[in-house]
Computed example of a mutant assay.
Amino acid sequence: MRDYIPNFIRSHRCLCVFIMLQLTLMLSMLEVIIQVDPSPEPQRPLTRVYLVGKLSQLACSPLLSGFAMGAQFYGYGLIHLRTKGPLGGFLSRLRMAALSVWQQCSTVMLLPWCLNVVQGLCLFPAHLWECLGKDSCLEADHFLLFMILSILFWSNLLILAITSLVVAVKLNLRMLGARHIGSRNHELRAYAQGINELLGFEMIVVPV
């Protein structure tokens, strides 16, 4: 059981990255709202905490996470197109173009995900600052407890967001680097050139 989780992560690396991205994005879309309701004297004001999220945003969140996962696939998966048949030349050029675009712009695929996560993370500090500006908030019942729990939730979410981004970027850079071989082994270079000839495009970059 101790080795099962590491083996599962290694075997399903892209799935685990998608789960991290999706979980971070969904949690960032949930806005934590601390509301202080005045109550008649001599009772203290009441503190209420709400988790607010739009169903439309939550429903569309897998699309943003899936879009970000495009940075993890060679040529956005188009290199797997079969080029046999009358459209073989067109599909071959399409594969080469997809690989070239992926090589240059793959990290841009993470940008929409990052913008949505950053926007969600910025909402809570702004709301908390606005709430602290009210004189009655510190006197409210359980306000400090709810504030500390909300800050802990936001801090853990921030750590999760940074970790998810770092993991996704490192995986993307590793795949980008895997296209290039710097070995002087003639057999390995010949093997890479044979793969390129078989595929019909330069999947592996072999230095001259």
Rank of each mutant, 00 (worst) to 15 (best):
L21V: 04
L21R: 03
Q22R: 07
L25R: 04
M26Y: 07
M29A: 15
L30G: 08
L30R: 12
E31C: 07
I33K: 04
Q35N: 14
Q35R: 09
V36K: 03
P40W: 08
E41M: 12
P42F: 11
P42E: 09
Q43I: 06
R44S: 13
R44K: 14
P45Y: 05
L46E: 13
L46M: 12
L46H: 02
V49N: 02
Y50I: 03
L55Q: 13
L55M: 12
S56K: 04
Q57H: 13
L58T: 04
S61F: 04
L64D: 01
L64A: 08
L64T: 05
F67S: 04
M69P: 02
Q72N: 01
G75K: 05
H80A: 14
L81D: 10
T83C: 15
T83A: 13
P86I: 11
G88W: 11
G89W: 07
F90I: 13
L91V: 09
S92Y: 00
R93N: 11
L94H: 03
M96A: 15
A97E: 08
L99A: 10
S100W: 13
V101H: 04
V101Q: 06
W102F: 04
W102N: 01
W102A: 01
W102M: 03
Q103G: 12
S106W: 04
V108T: 11
M109C: 15
C114E: 14
N116P: 00
N116C: 14
V118L: 15
Q119T: 11
Q119H: 14
G120H: 07
G120S: 07
L121I: 05
C122I: 10
F124C: 02
F124M: 04
A126Y: 12
L128N: 02
L128C: 10
W129I: 07
W129N: 09
W129D: 10
L132W: 03
S136T: 11
S136R: 13
S136E: 15
A140Q: 00
D141P: 00
